[in-house]
Simulated assay, not measured.
Amino acid sequence: MSKRSKIILIIIAILFVVALVWFGKKNKKSIIEYETETPFKTTIIKKTVATGKVTPLEEIEIKPQITGIIDKIMLLEGSKVKKGDLIATVRVVPNEQSLISARGRVDNIKLNVENSEIAYKRNKNLFDKGVISKQEFERFELTYNQAKQDLQNAQNDYLIIKKGSAGSGGSANTNIMAQMSGTILEIPVKEGDQVIQSNNFNAGTTIASIADMSKMIFEGKVDESEVGKLVSGSDIEVSIGAIEGVKFPAKLNFIAPKGTEEGGAVQFKIKADVSLSDDYFIRAGYSANADIVLEKRDSVLSVKEAVLRFDKKTEEPYVEVKQADGTFKNVTLKLGTSDGVNVEILEGVTIDDQIKIWNKASKDGKKIDD
């Protein structure tokens, strides 16, 4: 072998060794220093939000006692009223057939009264002369009195059909009065509209709705997965969409025993008394949300949910705890209440354990993926 060939072989050998050293260093995994954090004690509050609206606790609808036409409306929507205040008047438009029938009944009973009066007077003269007994005279007297009473009843019926009421209280049915003190929320009719009285077959026409705006309630719905954790009498907070940054205290007083299916989920109605502030005017029907505390755990050992991992086979939660030699060990946990950020630790780690923080590990201060 020539000298030149030996030199070439030596160079190749040196290059091969250098390559081996370079690849060895390249493939050697650096020791990664992970950031850690310790468990801590905090208060965990699990909440749910119920969407709904605020409505008056007491609200009534005013309906007419007669059928007719709205003659005049005295007040406007939003007006404050007291019980007995006049809201509107109704003009009676009698049914012609019923009016003629009632008038004919009055005329027929007048004939009976006239005949009974004649018989009464004739028999009274006979009784005064001692021709007939008192018992027989009283029979004619009773017939005459009954005829007069029938005439009075028929005349009253005629007046009711014609004017809406009888006697001196003729305005009692045609005047629409407030039945409670409060605020007029709505007057859904206008002058000239026909209204129908409430009866067994018809709910009647609503002339006005009145509510006490000083007493409001929250009406909302919660999901079936959370309704079992609600307790009647619990304190909640109500946020009204039209009033930003203000929460009104409320007390839960009703949880529906039966739910309704909406969009594939069963919802349960809830109600709560809202404590209002004089600084704000709350209108009926405002949309609102209620923050309801489902569970509260004071000063419990917790970790951030971000450090949790779940076993792919058992689906049990675990964390990686740093050991004395710098390595990490998987430790299975038993979890309690969670608020979405922090979770209660029942078993598994202590307050002194160092737990690996995922996605925050490097040897040069830069974040890397786990």
Rank of each mutant, 00 (worst) to 15 (best):
S5M: 12
S5Y: 12
S5P: 00
I10M: 08
I12N: 14
A13C: 03
I14F: 01
F16A: 11
A19C: 12
G24E: 09
K25T: 07
E35P: 07
F40W: 00
K47N: 15
T51D: 09
V54I: 11
P56W: 07
L57T: 13
L75T: 10
K80S: 15
D85W: 15
L86M: 13
V90H: 06
V90W: 04
V92L: 01
P94K: 03
S98N: 14
V106E: 08
E117H: 05
A119K: 12
A119N: 15
R122H: 07
K129N: 13
G130C: 08
E141P: 09
E141D: 13
D157V: 06
D157T: 10
G164H: 05
S168V: 13
G169T: 04
A178S: 09
G192Y: 04
D193T: 15
Q194R: 07
N199L: 09
G204D: 08
T205R: 01
I210E: 08
S214D: 14
F218E: 11
E219F: 02
K229I: 01
E237S: 02
A256T: 05
G263P: 13
V266Y: 01
K271W: 05
K271C: 04
A272M: 07
D273Y: 12
F281S: 12
I292Y: 02
I292E: 02
L294A: 10
R297G: 00
R297L: 12
E305V: 07
A306S: 15
R309P: 00
D311Y: 06
T314F: 05
Y318S: 00
E320M: 09
N330W: 13
T337H: 04
D339E: 07
D339C: 06
N342A: 13
T350Y: 02
I351C: 10
D352G: 01
D353P: 03
I357K: 03
W358I: 14
N359V: 05
S362M: 05
D364S: 11
